[in-house]
Each structure stands twice: as C-alpha cells, then as structure tokens.
Design a protein around this nucleic acid. Structure first.
Lengths: 110, 110
DNA sequence: TTTATTAATCGTAATATTGCAATATAATAA
DNA sequence: TTATTATATTGCAATATTACGATTAATAAA
C-alpha cells in the first residue's frame, strides 16, 4: 500500500522514524554536512556542490526545513540556509537514546 | 523517478542514508526496541506485539537482517531473532560521528 | 519599467515502499 | 506419512519518493 500505519505505533517510534527518514537520502546527508562545513549559510551553491537539479535540491531542503533541522533566511534574491542548532541538539538527544539501548546491560541471545 | 542517484555521493553519505532508511519506519524501530527489551530473542511474537500481518513483519525483519542490525537463528520450526551487537556498535560509531558534527565549534549563520 | 537572478512550486514520469492475501517452504509432532 | 506450526516468498494494489523540465514569484539591477 505504501501507507505507513502510524496509528499503531507510539509517538516516540514515529518520531524516530521521521527523523531517520530525513537522513534516509544521501542528498540530504550531503546538504547537512555541507551546511556544517560551510558554517555560514549558503543556498543555491548546493545545486553546484551536489549535482542535482535545482528543483530537486529545493525539494530536499523543504523536507529538512519541515522537520526543523535547517532554517532559511531571505537575503535579497537568495535564501541563506543554515542548521537549526537547537533542533539539531534535541534531535540528537532523541536519536542517541535510541542508539544507546544496547548499553542496558543485557545478556546475549540465540 | 524514485531512483536515488547514489553514484554522485560519497560512500559515507550513502552508508549513513542506508542506515537511516532502516530506521525510517516505525515498525522497524519497534522491532529493534522489542528485541532489546526482550533480550532473549523472539520471532513471531512480533506479529502479535506490533499488530501488522505476518508477511509484513517478515519483510521488515528481512530489511533489518540485510543491513546487518539483526540476525536470526533457526530453532525448531521457529526462528530466533536478535540484535547483532557487533554491527550495532559499528553502526553507532558511524551515525554518532554524523550527529556530532555540530561539536566542531563553528560560529553562527544567517 | 525591463531584465536578470534566485529559489519555490507545479506537473509528471519512473521507481520504491508498505501492507496483505495466498501460497510455498521447512521443521517438528502425531 | 500426514498434520501442524512457523516463517518466507510471491503477487499485487495503493501510496510515497525521487528527479527534473517548465513555470512562477520575488527581489535586485539596469
């Protein structure tokens, strides 16, 4: 069906999955890495840097913005994108907790 | 197109995206949490626990197995699934490095 | 005003994902 | 052998995602 049955999962499970989805495409990973690297914010450079068409990059930026990991400020004709550090931190907390489940000291399995 | 242009990205970017994809569905998040919680390994319980049809769960398990986060041991008629802890650790290293990019002390943006 | 420039949006094609019924497979039990 | 049980696979329908050309919108420059 292609339709995830979100209703049957917890808020937390859906939240983790949604965050993960944002990271689930190499273009979005690349965009985030570039934004961290460049520090000051850039926009259409990403088209050149990454090598996908402008509408495609714009679409990926929208997804990252929707989930709150980046923000964009209008600057003349261009838009300056940057990491939303507060939300990045919050996201890290959520994801880290999930990743560190293995530290809960359990014996082994089959 | 629905076809990701993996060629234009680095190995690392694709790797992160692929890991994230595995976490990009709440059912797979739930499966992993359950496997951690139950400690000893379980199989078809997941169908009851989660509430998706058996073929659907089986498919999600396959994806988690393909990426190496879980492993399954045959035990009679049933199959005992559990976390692949070595790979989980390796995965954590990769993901953590990505998540901790923000610690690279940069000023602010726009 | 006209013309660039930049980025968002629309429309669409191709492919991927999700979910399940039906069926197949494999191992054990009777 | 014939059930029974547990899981995988197949096939398919519905929806989602990826990518891009064409267009639009908004600002800046001439």
């Amino acid at each position: 069906m292609g339709l995830t049955k979100s209703e049957i999962f917890t808020e937390e499970q859906n939240q983790i999955a949604n965050i993960a989805k944002a990271f689930g495409h190499p273009a979005r990973v690349a965009i985030l890495q570039y934004l961290f690297k460049i520090n000051s914010c850039i926009c259409g450079d990403l088209v050149e840097e990454i090598g996908l068409a402008q509408p495609t990059i714009s679409q990926h930026l929208k997804e990252l913005k929707n989930i709150g990991l980046i923000k964009g400020n209008i600057e003349g004709t261009s838009i300056c994108y940057c990491i939303n550090k507060d939300n990045w931190s919050k996201m890290k907390t959520i994801v880290s907790e999930f990743l560190n489940q293995d530290l809960n000291e359990n014996i082994n399995c089959c």
